[in-house]
Design a protein around this nucleic acid. Structure first.
Length: 384
RNA sequence: GUGGUCAUGGUAUAAUGGUUAUUACUUCGGCUUGUGGAGCCGAAAAUACGGGUUCAAUUCCCGUUGGCCACC
């Protein structure tokens, strides 16, 4: 059986519907993947995730290496058993954390990060201890964690970096891609089942570099192709442009994954329209914990969302979204959720996260149905 | 009752005889993108009351009211 089967290609765009086959179940694509960095989607447990029809979740190599450590998780036969999640998991390699938690970045200051051609030395954001990742060690850690889909170790460059440095980093990422693949091929079934490895295209916002990176990653024997970078997701105009550059180059029959996409409903349409099968983003869960909740009637001008903290919801008997079928909208009023946030009660985080993820995953379901019926662009128009 | 002391946004506070009176919390909006239950940005909101001195008083003086402390 192939890892990835395309079931239907939309007649009016590059959108396609497909299925990813893994040991822990099939994944219908295109799909949004909730982020559960530390082996938990914050505030939810696996029963909640199944109830909202999550098909696959993410976890992170960097965070789990530092705490509790891959050897401990391997002791529990991998992440699935450790966290009691029986469906597919994808682990990010930790390459992005070198960038996002790196020196000079907003949010986490003063982290020591030294990049050389062999790997990266960095200090822990938890206790300042020194650590080192190489392509080989990042793969080894991911084997022990046991995710169904794992990622090559890459270097993500800032978009404002000069072309010379971006080119160096990109070439390093290509060399690391080969080394990740070699390390992976020595042991593709650490826990007794096959893990699939994706390569990552870099090159920031330089057309020639993106094309070169797309060629380099495409010719390697990866199971899937990811598109990374600071702009991807964060700057949708740039993201669309990058996808238009690399799409003619990357193999059509492999799954395409844009890393960090899924801030607003329209973002989902934009990348699916350009042939993307998988994407993840912390936004739906993070903004949920701050009280920002998806609502279709709020309209495109409000990014289809409302802030439940606002005073206007203090005594509002309606659900967050009257068309939503999630357990939060079926059972709770805006007034109650407003109160939970006002009082900083833990249940508020859970109810909000359930709603935002359900909203996104149900929209993905609608998108898949629309693709199969060649009306993807019509559905997109409803949300424009 | 006598003496002392204090009175600044809703709460707690800083400062000053002279542009727009400080800060925190609260309140009201916003930001959030391969995770950050955090953080950040913006807005609203005050010199107890009455009189006096002065070019100018939230500041100095007197009184009123109220709080606190001590004494009888």
């Amino acid at each position: 059986m192939n890892f990835f089967n395309i079931i239907h290609k939309d007649k009016n765009s590059q959108a396609r519907a497909g299925i990813l086959h893994t040991e822990h179940g099939d994944i219908e694509t295109p799909i949004f993947m909730p982020v559960g960095t530390q082996a938990t989607v914050k505030s939810l447990d696996p029963v909640d995730l199944e109830n909202i029809n999550a098909q696959i979740i993410l976890a992170n190599t960097y965070h789990l290496h530092l705490r509790p450590g891959e050897d401990l998780i391997a002791d529990y036969q991998g992440l699935h058993k450790f966290m009691n999640w029986s469906r597919p998991i994808l682990t990010d390699s930790g390459g992005f954390q070198v960038f996002s938690l790196g020196q000079g970045n907003e949010g986490v200051q003063g982290r020591l990060v030294n990049i050389d051609d062999d790997g990266v030395t960095f200090t822990s954001h938890i206790d300042g201890s020194k650590h080192r990742f190489t392509p080989e060690s990042a793969i080894d850690i991911q084997h022990k964690l046991g995710a169904d889909i794992i990622m090559a170790f890459d270097e993500c460059t800032p978009d404002n970096a000069e072309e010379k440095y971006v080119k160096e980093a990109m070439e390093r990422t290509h060399a690391w891609a080969k080394r990740s693949l070699d390390a992976h091929n020595k042991n593709t079934a650490y826990h007794g089942y096959k893990q699939f490895l994706f390569g990552i295209i870099q090159g920031a916002n330089y057309k020639e570099l993106r094309e070169e990176s797309a060629r380099a990653i495409s010719k390697l024997d990866f199971d899937g192709i990811a598109i990374g970078g600071e702009s991807v997701g964060y700057n949708m105009e740039a993201t669309k442009e990058i996808l238009d550059w690399v799409n003619p180059i990357i193999p059509e029959n492999k799954p395409h994954y844009t890393m960090g996409v899924g801030f607003s409903p329209m973002d989902l349409f934009e990348v699916v329209e350009r042939g993307v099968d998988m994407f993840d983003c912390v936004a739906p869960t993070r903004i949920a914990r701050n009280g920002t909740l998806f609502n279709k009637k709020a309209g495109a001008e409000n990014k289809y969302r409302l802030n439940i903290n606002n005073a206007q919801y203090r005594n509002d008997k309606n659900p967050i979204d009257s068309d939503c079928k999630c357990s939060t909208c079926q059972n709770y009023s805006r007034a109650y959720i407003h109160h939970l946030f006002d009082a900083k009660e833990l249940l508020g985080y859970k109810l909000a996260t359930v709603h935002n993820l359900y909203f996104f995953l149900d929209l993905m379901r609608q998108i898949r149905e629309a693709i199969k019926e060649d009306r993807f662009l019509e559905l997109k128009k409803e949300w424009k």
